[in-house]
Design a protein around this nucleic acid. Structure first.
Lengths: 197, 197
DNA sequence: GGAAGTTTAAGAAATAGGCTTAATGTAGTT
DNA sequence: AACTACATTAAGCCTATTTCTTAAACTTCC
């Protein structure tokens, strides 16, 4: 049952009681997605908080020259959040797309607000979720600002080593802000270095 | 009274009642800082949530080569938050330093946790505060990733135009990830462009 | 099994942004 | 008020990092 994954994820923060579980269960919608399907497209207002049960997503932005920039990868037991769009009802600046076939659980903005108002515990859990996201994002910014492409690649591999093998290099390159060819060059250099030593 | 600024800031999210105000007042500590004083230093564990009543701060990171990278500026009616450090009791990776003489209000981590546990409304306000921070940070990342130095400068001026005049160029350059000399070059180019048209 | 997409490779080319120096300007401290 | 320590602008040269290009080999997917 996919919803068990959601409960388990919450329980890591604070264990839920039956009432809270029931309330959650009654407003969660399950969806299956194929590769390349979108959860959210640019200019659309995000209507759901989305929990990933299975599969992997990329969140990306298309710049004025038409180039895609991967902002984030989201996989199992993690939340897809387009914070500005869902809370402030603004059109999204980003796309969110499935890289693999996926199962997700969605809660509508309306239902989420009711849940947060009714259960202090859920409000807390969602505060902590967003805090964790904030920390991850700040680390990402730090890396982007102060590291070379090679260092960023190494940081990425360390942080996402489980995911890395599931992702095509083009996607990783877009995350790192370089071309796939250059990523390949970096890998070549690194394997030369390790051979020597 | 500095604490009025804090109440006013909260009231923008959700109006506080007397009990909540009293609880807040009883655990808030006021501090005055001079230029170049630190609120937090690297490797230190952040012990307080800090609200800026007056003055302006920079949050920065020093890389392996000793170069400073400004992550963020924080001014009046905004919160200084070192999320990872305060919540997970980890040593901070960043420094937070006053650029101007400042007045701040601080709540200890312990007191904050009590407040959040006791008052659902405060939990909500702090959730929304961190969400807003997240949105700002995501925009910053987007700019860093997909814009040229000149575009980043223009975005910065748009977003922080009130602050910009209070900040020395060296600080702005460090935020943009370029040298002060190059920032000066960008400004020169831009004023040439506008002269022509 | 064939088409479409990925990865590696390697050399040439572009350019954004750094470095240096120097002269002038501005603020903070005593 | 004067001294000092930073900040800013400018200009020319420079180069490290990436991109671009082409091509061949390898995968994955329907």
């Amino acid at each position: 049952m996919p919803i068990q994954a959601l409960f388990a994820s919450f329980d890591k923060y604070l264990p839920l009681n039956d009432e809270e579980r029931e309330a959650l269960r009654s407003c969660v919608i399950e969806r299956k997605l194929r590769r390349k399907q979108f959860v959210l497209q640019e200019a659309e207002v995000c209507k759901h908080y989305t929990f990933v049960v299975e599969g992997c997503f990329k969140k990306f932005h298309v710049d004025t020259k038409g180039v895609e920039h991967n902002l984030q990868f989201i996989a199992e037991n993690d939340w897809i959040t387009e914070v500005d769009s869902i809370h402030n009802r603004k059109p999204s600046k980003a796309y969110i797309e499935a890289i693999e076939p996926a199962i997700i659980l969605q809660i509508s903005q309306r239902d989420l607000y009711d849940l947060l108002a009714k259960f202090h515990k859920l409000e807390r859990i969602f505060r902590v979720i967003i805090e964790n996201r904030y920390v991850a994002l700040e680390n990402r910014l730090l890396q982007t600002i102060s590291e070379t492409a090679e260092e960023r690649y190494l940081s990425f591999m360390e942080q996402y080593h489980d995911l890395a093998s599931r992702l095509p290099n083009t996607q990783i390159a877009s995350y790192l802000g370089i071309t796939p060819e250059f990523l390949s060059k970096i890998r070549g250099n690194l394997s030369k270095k390790t051979e020597k030593s």
